[in-house]
Nucleic acid binder design. Sequence first.
DNA 1: TTATTTATTGAATATTCATTCAATATTAAA
DNA 2: TTTAATATTGAATGAATATTCAATAAATAA
Lengths: 206, 206
Amino acid sequence: MKNSIRKERKKEIISGLYELSQSEGLENVSIAKIGKHLGMPPSLVMHYFPNKRLLILGLIDHILHQYQLIYKPIISKMENQPRINPELLVDRLFSRDWNLLFDDGVFFSCYAFIFRDASIKREYKNLHVKLRMTLKTLLDKDEVLMNGDTGLLAERIFVVIEGAYYYLSMMDDPKTYDEKLKIFKDQVYELIYSEINRLEQPARSG
Amino acid sequence: MKNSIRKERKKEIISGLYELSQSEGLENVSIAKIGKHLGMPPSLVMHYFPNKRLLILGLIDHILHQYQLIYKPIISKMENQPRINPELLVDRLFSRDWNLLFDDGVFFSCYAFIFRDASIKREYKNLHVKLRMTLKTLLDKDEVLMNGDTGLLAERIFVVIEGAYYYLSMMDDPKTYDEKLKIFKDQVYELIYSEINRLEQPARSG
DNA sequence: TTATTTATTGAATATTCATTCAATATTAAA
DNA sequence: TTTAATATTGAATGAATATTCAATAAATAA
């Protein structure tokens, strides 16, 4: 019981930091503002996070955890099927449902820390490697794709997803956004289909 | 003459801001620090940039300008040739020579502003669209590729480049870095070669 | 119950922040 | 040379910053 109030408070504080980062920008959030936002004195914030760096680390933990949740529904929907459905897979990979899970601005503000904090860089890297492994595990269940290099395919798919995430964040006009989105989805389709074709046909000289 | 000292001073200040952002992080730079770094009173900094937002805008202008310079050498090397050399092109597109031109940490710190500042978003978008048009122009000079959709090809190439830039920034180990880099370079080769193959062969049903 | 640990408060700290202002120095235009 | 515009200085502002501390309240353990 003693410990649970501590955990809850820490969560509450990180949520407050997150909300303020979303509306005002991470660089404009202070401990006093967090306290005011949550109705507690700044000294209580510092009781749980003795310095600002720990606060930032807590926020990054939270965001990376949310990020990871994005792909949970894909996995549960696809596992236990002998063949993957490329349309469905790509649809889910590019879905922006996760916009409900976390804010892109906060995500990239935190991302910028990887260049000056080695442990943050490691955390971000672990997440991205883990996501690739998740996709690889999914591809490994397909009875055709499993005969190829699913790790390589997962890398190639994710680099498009991440490039698209970065690039599409700049698009304001929904029409342009959809046009570009279609391009990148098709690009991933082709990665999958050409791998399937390659594996289904007998080896050729090249 | 009167105007040139103004322009030089503004450049000097932006450079100072850039250097400090590189070493301390953009969020930790203040007007006083810039002044100290350059040996001038903070009031002089504010004489040229009346508020902090204008300072940030100046920094972003500077970075986007540098970013654009990355691809200058590619263009000059490749234009006036009837066929593009895919190896050479991909090598240049993925070269990290630009690390001399600007700092990735500062770049992403500034990028994070697009989510809360519409005019910054527009600037970033314009840059990225322009880079794609530059590549398209290059592809259009190739006597085979010119018969296909070079705009689409440019989009597909750049999304890989940008995804790779984002993802590879997390890699510390040079060996891992090179392995991943090779994957993404090959991915772009294949985009180019499969487009060339498609265009060189007679139309098929499908 | 008492003792001990944890949670919470509010006041206080020195430092840094962006910004303003009046005064002076320098330069260009007349 | 005089005038006007700009460049530069240094001091001053109040607000906000992260952090500290002692005191109190609440919860748990003895």
